[in-house]
Write a protein that binds this DNA or RNA. Structure first.
Lengths: 253, 253
DNA sequence: GAATGTGAAGTATTTCACAGCT
DNA sequence: AGCTGTGAAATACTTCACATTC
């Protein structure tokens, strides 16, 4: 099929594994906490514990960035904070827009974790004309009509979609057309985007479903130890079941 | 010495890879949409496109569940919906509590995606006495003092933490002590939990940081061929959509 | 003919274990 | 002595490609 696309955004120069990139923010958070407590140095063992990973993994991760530690001593906290911040691109200011100011969008607008990491909420956008002008988290909501202008005026390259699923693709298309190249999608839908645009999604109900899977497994394997009243009779036919037979259409709307 | 039982009885029987489990909700969502449009069958190719993965992966994933398709034909949509729901444990009712009813907690309480997948918000809990009794999403907020009783009375095994970071570990400890064995954590902190308790985390600012990393890289590599960046609709499913490579936040070692 | 299901091959990630520096 | 940095081994995941089944 001749590889019509590059799977990863041009991973040639400095190939930091995706799995490592995904953990850098974790390390950064732990380091920031240490920095606030004025801890000067930290060992891979300590930092790993604070970040919730094991130390071999952490050292391997850091080895992709360079040799920033001192053997026999550990890592200089401030130096490492800077190096990771730089690697993640957090030493610059990232204006973001949030589209869809419902409950979730408002929560995101109020979320302190953005500002403290170099992300600045440049604008809030909603399709409801009644919202226009209303301030949320101190920022006046603007109407979708002006989306393109807002993106361009603010030089926004990162967009957050918190609209209902039905509107997400359309919003996405407009964001991309206006110049946005990274999208964080909270709508429970798969977005299709042109090459070169990154999408990450957060689906709250997916996380719960994964938990339910493991929870079910626990209940099935260990004989209920300690729990007094188990609710809900489990329809357990975990062994192989017949080819067909009756197929209960179990799906709440 | 500690438990060495990290690997189970090494069977191939019920060992569904984590990566596969994490995609089942995705398939389920796509299948539900097909079901609503009364589509009777679907091929791996079509379903994969709808879910945003490639078809080989999807077939491999399904092969861990069993042989639910028909060669030459495809998959029966209703049947597959049922099988995946059952595998995920969604054929039973999961009462959940949400602790921390700030902006985010309220958004979660209002989020429709929970109820539609077998999750029932059994209670909302907050530490602020002024919130007590106030209804959010139609459910009266209860005070933290009653946490243990609420958990037990409702047979809750899944808890959602949406408190500030500072309160999260304490809330977590109480949830676990009261019998909760799965936790979805929105607070930007690493929770430590005893063996047997699952934690999944969602950190909004981490997702943005990962995007920033790639965004920075794009800007740095900007080649002269940059004008192809218009949405010429490269209809691929390539996009690295999704925070799959997640850290299964388990703790002590 | 069409499309699943799956060994085998190919990648990616994690873990081990220890050489090498301070 | 203590701790990093890293090849090598182990494990996990993805993709290929095709025999098999309808």
């Amino acid at each position: 099929m001749a590889t019509g696309r590059t799977h990863r955004p041009a991973t040639r120069s400095r190939g930091i594994p995706e799995a490592t990139v995904a953990r850098l923010p974790l390390y950064l958070r732990a380091l920031t906490a240490l920095s606030e407590r004025s801890v000067p140095t930290v060992s891979s063992e300590e930092l790993a514990a604070a970040a919730g990973v094991n130390s071999a993994k952490l050292r391997k991760d850091f080895s992709y960035l360079g040799s920033y530690g001192t053997r026999g001593v550990g890592y200089d906290v401030e130096y490492l904070v800077y190096q990771i911040s730089r690697e993640l691109g957090l030493t610059q200011d990232w204006p973001v827009v949030i589209v869809g100011i419902g409950n979730l969008g408002a929560a995101l607008a109020n979320y302190g974790g953005f500002a403290s990491r170099g992300f600045r909420v440049a604008a809030l956008i909603d399709a409801d004309p009644a919202m226009a002008g209303k301030p949320v988290a101190g920022i006046p909501v603007q109407h979708t009509d002006d989306l393109e202008k807002i993106i361009k005026d603010n030089g926004v390259s990162i967009g957050v979609i918190a609209t209902p699923a039905g509107a997400a693709q359309q919003v996405c298309d407009r964001l991309v057309a206006a110049g946005v190249t990274s999208i964080l999608n909270f709508a429970p839908t798969v977005l299709s985007v042109p090459d070169g645009v990154d999408v990450r999604k957060v689906d709250l109900s997916i996380e719960l479903q994964i938990l339910a899977f493991h929870e079910q497994r626990k209940a099935g394997e260990e004989t209920a130890a300690g729990d007094a009243a188990l609710p809900a009779a489990t329809r357990d036919d975990s062994a192989d079941q017949g080819p067909d037979g009756d197929v209960p259409a179990v799906m709440p709307a």
